[in-house]
Design a protein around this nucleic acid. Sequence first.
DNA 1: TCCAGAAACTTGAACGATCCAATCCTGCCT
DNA 2: AGGCAGGATTGGATCGTTCAAGTTTCTGGA
Lengths: 329, 329
Amino acid sequence: MAEKVTIATVARHARVSRQTVSNVLNAPHIVRQETRQRVEDAINALGYRANQAARQMRTGRSRLIAARIDPTRDGINGSVLDRFLHGLTETADAAGYRVLLYTATDDDREIATYGDLLGTYELDAFVLVGTKYGDPRTEWLADRDVPFVTFGRPWDALDAHPWVDVDGAAGTAQATRRLLDAGHRRIAFIGWPVGSGVGDDRRAGWRDALHAAGVDPTGLHRETEDGIAEGERLMRDLLVAVAPSAVVCASDSLALGALQAIRGVDPPVSVIGFDDTPVAAAVGLTSVSQPLGEAAARCVDLLTGVLDGDHETPTPVLLQPSLALRHTA
Amino acid sequence: MAEKVTIATVARHARVSRQTVSNVLNAPHIVRQETRQRVEDAINALGYRANQAARQMRTGRSRLIAARIDPTRDGINGSVLDRFLHGLTETADAAGYRVLLYTATDDDREIATYGDLLGTYELDAFVLVGTKYGDPRTEWLADRDVPFVTFGRPWDALDAHPWVDVDGAAGTAQATRRLLDAGHRRIAFIGWPVGSGVGDDRRAGWRDALHAAGVDPTGLHRETEDGIAEGERLMRDLLVAVAPSAVVCASDSLALGALQAIRGVDPPVSVIGFDDTPVAAAVGLTSVSQPLGEAAARCVDLLTGVLDGDHETPTPVLLQPSLALRHTA
DNA sequence: TCCAGAAACTTGAACGATCCAATCCTGCCT
DNA sequence: AGGCAGGATTGGATCGTTCAAGTTTCTGGA
């Protein structure tokens, strides 16, 4: 029905040239106030919107940010991503960017996807969630000067790129201190195998908090892959071996397993999880809560910093988690 | 470093014209086999990828599909969206489309966002999750001939658009029959207030299954807004009023509440939830499971049908849910 | 051998924005 | 009154692709 409104339509309507309209949009300060007003009125009257494809062709920028959506592993921690993505979409929107989703089953495919997205859509930047030692993805992106931020700090000292992370150690330390304050001394920890950056970090928080309180953590921790069943198994093991009065877990999945293992144990063992997932809220599990909306917002801040101006590498951001108190601790 | 590879670069390399390269990409059958091979070799050798912005400018199609990501309400049912989005991304990818995220706090803003996305990004289609009676969004889109699919059937008879849905009534009926088969007769239902399409549908499945078995459902159901606390409250009410031996719930949130209400009740009351959320899996709640990946795939099928060809309105798809059996029923 | 008709390929224009360089005002100073 | 500086405005070229129309090559039948 209504035919396409281009910059030329607006120009005609406001009786100026196309370039003047373009200036109103991209460099308003160089246009006389009165003219600018006339153009803006025309834009509103006609409902004009700059065509992104045409703009992109000339400028080479797409105002598109890519983020990965995972195949929801055990479904519990997937919801962390869920909330992060929502925050990302919201903040990116406010900054004039849009979020494009992609998936990949492994690193190689993910890197192939990068090439595809960059080549065909000319994406402006990537947001990577989670990083590991020697991550090939960050290396690939850095080599090609593709702007990106990671949610999760780089665990290799060598590569320095913008990142946002939540201080996991501070979270587990806070959890541990709360248990210490409640009078607990035999506070165990169930975490992930040594060698994963995130896992080691979370364990360190627990260990340091115990040390600071003069408690020896020896023998009080267990390691395993993530999962409810694993958490339950290790908790049973701990109960037999060291009879802890409380346990801090590296994830809500592990904590849920632990909860099942202690069912019926008296006196009740306190449990604290990590991530404050909906499951934790549902079953009343006290859990370390990451400020995901804030993290997403800072990711966008860092990216827009790189994209819209300063060439200096922006300062990384380390956010503090909080403790969502419920009835398990 | 390597300068941009355009269709002209490929053309030069394969010693043909730009148009021939374009034909190899978009209409291979009109190019002679030998020439086609030469062009394809050049494409691979140079790592050429068609620039989407330029293509879009000419064709007016962006190969972009928009999907909304919600502000994870109570967090439990949010994970349904999570899984759906992942499926959507995966299938869209295979069909040559990409998924763009957007958010909105209410219908008006959502519609404003449609205008924005269509105007600036020339989106090809929208996927709406969830629909209600007299949904203004579908009306707006239909009025402007914007292709869209809803995951959730239209509850107004009047508007006919492509949709994919899961047969909620079949799900609750299946749950109810399982309970009947296990010997239960006093099977209650906790659902949402009359007037929501989805809620009425799920209740109907339970009622019909009872009728079919010759059981009178009178007095056995309760209605409320969604939520764990509400589920618990209504379950307590039911226990006092009619002492059911089993209950079917319209959501996992309600079912979780019910589970808390029956803690310690003997003999144990069977509970079945709806949506098979991670929480259900975690606490061992039997729940009606929606085939979300399949639903997402069918949404993409319907859209590509509309976008890439046939002008007829495609047939809606109604998928059958299954029962994820766990230890609560 | 020649030509019609089809098939294969090439050329010029256009999509809608921005960039660049040239031109036009306008006010101000001499 | 004339000239000049500076900002505001203008027209033309351009990004990479596809469409439309044109040209060349091939094929087969008389």
